[in-house]
């Protein structure tokens, strides 16, 4: 993977992007017990697979979601958060 397609700025070199990690739903910190919260804070799905991840195009500070196969480093699609349907 040498290129990444930002949903706003188009296809750019990968050096313009940073990865913000896997997209994960945050539990309500006021509702959950310490162990569930620790699970959210520390634990990850570390095995290879197709994952939805946060990425940021740094020159324009655009955060978006990329679906990527972490085994072969291939981006399947990218979209702005919440606009998955239109992609």
């Amino acid at each position: 993977m040498k290129l990444m397609t930002c949903p706003v700025n188009g296809t750019r070199p990968i050096s313009e992007f940073i990865c913000g990690g896997e997209l994960r739903p945050m539990p309500d910190p006021n509702q959950v017990d310490d162990e569930t919260w620790a699970d959210y804070v520390f634990h990850r799905n570390g095995a290879a697979g197709i994952k939805a991840e946060w990425w940021c195009h740094t020159p324009s500070n655009t955060w978006f979601v990329a679906e990527r196969n972490t085994q072969i480093d291939q981006v399947l699609r990218t979209y702005l958060y919440g606009q998955e349907e239109q992609s």
Partner: peptide, 17 residues
């Protein structure tokens, strides 16, 4: 390969490769 092996036994961990 640890995350893959941990998945086999259903243990959670913070590992990222």
């Amino acid at each position: 390969s640890t995350p893959k092996l941990l998945e086999m036994v259903g243990l959670r961990s913070p590992l990222v490769i």
